[in-house]
Amino acid sequence: MFAYIIRRIAYAIPILIGVNILTFYLFFVVNSPDDMARLHLGMKHVTPEAIEKWKASHGYDKPLLLNKQAEGVEQLTDTIFFEKSVRLFAFDFGYSDDGRDISYDISQRMLPSLAIAIPALIIGLMVNITFAMLMAFFRGTYVDVSGVILCVVLMSISGMFYIIGGQYLLAKVFRLMPISGFAAGIDTIKFIILPVLIGVVSGIGSGSRWYRTFFLEEAGKDYIRTARAKGLSESLVLFRHILRNALIPIVTGVVVILPLLFMGSLLTESFFSIPGLGSYTIDAINKQDFAVVRAMVFLGTVLYIVGLILVDITYTIVDPRVRLS
C-alpha cells in the first residue's frame, strides 16, 4: 500500500511538469511578453522603451527557456520558464501584476471558500442520499418515476437561475438574509446560509438521480436476493446490504472532489461577493492577471492529483475487496 502511494506521488511529477509546460506555452510562447506588455500598457504608451520597462519591472525581460549569456546552471534558472513556472513546485507563487503576494492572498481567501463549500457538500450529500434511497425504495412505482422526472427538470435549470432566483426571492422579497457579502466571526453564518442553501438545492437534481443508479445497481445484485431469502425486512435489506455497497462509489466520488473544495466556487462566490478563491480566480481572469491564473492552475492541478491519491486510499478503507488483496 505504502509503495503504491509512493508510486502515485512519483507519477504525479510528470503530470505537474506537463501542466507547467502547457500553461507556459499558452502564456509565453503564443503570447510573447511583448504582446502582454502592449496589452497592459494600452495603445497610447506603446513605445519600445515602455515595453522594455514593463517587461523589466514584471520579470519578463529574460529569455524564455535558455539563457545563453548566463553561466552554468544559471543558463537554465535565469529564464522566464524557471522564474515563472518551476518555482511553483516550491509553492512559491510570486507576486500578482498589481504587486500583491499571491501566496498570502490564497491563504487569506481559503477559509471563506471552505466556509461555503464544506457545509454545502455535507448537507447536499445527506439530502441527495436520502432522496436517492427514497426513489430506490419505491423503485418502479409512481414515486420513483415522478422523482426521476423531477430530478431531470431540476437539473435542466441553469445554476445561475438558482442563484439569482434565490437571491431575489429569499433575500430581496422576503428579506430573510443579506443578498451578498461576507463577515468574519459569528456573523459568517448569516452570510453563508443562502449560498449553502442554493448550493444544495441546485445539486439535488443531478446528485440524487446519479446516486439512485448506484442504489438500483446494487438492488439488482445476487446477494440482495440472498438477503431477501434470509427473511430480512425490506428496510434491513436497504440499509444493511444496499446502502453499504452503494456508499462505496458515493464516498469515493466525494473524496475525489474534496481537495478541490479549496478552489471555491466561481459562480457562488462571485454572485454573493464572498472573498474566496473562486472570486479571486474570476477577478484575475477579468483583470487578465496571468500570474494569479497560473498559480491557480498549478494549485488546482496539485489538488486534483491529491484527490486521486485520496480516492485510492479511501478504497482501501471502505472496500474490503481492495483492502485485503
Binding site: 445476487d222 440472498t226 453499504r244 455497497n245
Partner: peptide, 16 residues
C-alpha cells in the same frame, strides 16, 4: 425454507 443459489461468487455480500 432456505435457499442456496447457483453462483456462490455473487450471492454473498462483498462488504460484510
Amino acid at each position: 425454507i432456505s435457499m442456496i443459489f447457483q453462483e456462490p461468487m455473487t450471492s454473498l455480500n462483498p462488504v460484510l
